[in-house]
Amino acid sequence: MSESPEPLLSVQGLEKHFPITKGLIKRQVGAVKAVDGLSFDVVKGETLGLVGESGCGKTTTGRLITRLLEPTGGKVVFEGRDITHMSQGALRPLRRDMQMIFQDPYSSLNPRHTVGAIVGAPFRIQGVKTEHGTKKAVQDILELVGLNPEHYNRYPHEFSGGQRQRIGIARTLALKPKLIIADEPVSALDVSIQAQVVNLLEDLQNELDLTYVVIAHDLSVVRHISDRVAVMYLGKIVEIADRQALYEAPMHPYTTALLSAVPVPDVKRRTERERIRLQGDVPSPLNPPSACRFHTRCWKAQEICKTVEPPLAELATGHQVACHFPENAPKDAVPGDAGTAVPA
């Protein structure tokens, strides 16, 4: 976003290639390009949604940003500081400002710790002293996320899925972080509970001035909570735009196909809806298709898509797309300009 001079988080050309080794001496024979050159900024107070199908690298991206995985290339800049190759020791104070919410509320909480110990762990690890003691601080946070503070001494198995996710959120919020990476925060929950947690995340954002990167595969949930949305396909961003622009006038054929594939609970229009049906599955990231990675499933693909990789170009204000033949593009825009395109 151009109007904001200093983004809270800036990701530049981020790459993660997992090596594939073979034989006794672990000779490297290839690489899974899980994340292959991502660039985006997140400004303070906004929510960026990261959507894509399984295997597109969205979870890996979240883990790279929080340095739970080592990037093999590119840069992660948080509050103006390059944290890409910071040591774990130097990183620790930064962990206060950058936290993660995990998908599975069952496996992300230690079953042998009480809620108090789980939510209090960040204080202990970071050596944070609070005015009225850790217990009071933990109980305040439990109340904030809608749990009963008296449940301090209970164990995770005593709670339902939705309540466990609240415990996870409480732990995330303990040290008042600035940036929260939420990896599929609601996909393991029942529909009625999903809505509770989505509303909670929104309330907390307003109250505590949080910045979110929400990773999810559910396009309707992402539209509901995000200000901007990035669509990923096989390790690359194919389109990034404001929520409204992306959902109402998607430019990339993949985005269009994704949106039209979502089943809509409207029985009146089920027969008349026009759908784009993609053929086949997402190709393996081990051997991604040449140039534009979507060309094997794209109905608009032509010769150029197989030979020249379309760059992620800004075709309208704040609307970037990587496609040679974008839809809904303004007339004067030059998509996939041959001058700037990178030959594969």
Binding site: V191, S192, I193, Q194, A195, Q196, V198, N199, E202, L219, S220, V221, R223, H224, R243, Y247, L259, V262, V264, P265, D266, R269
Partner: peptide, 16 residues
């Protein structure tokens, strides 16, 4: 409870 793609975005979900 369900955000819907076919309608305008509601400001707030109404959970149970």
């Amino acid at each position: 409870s369900m955000p819907r793609l076919d309608r305008a975005r509601t400001e707030r979900l109404m959970p149970i």
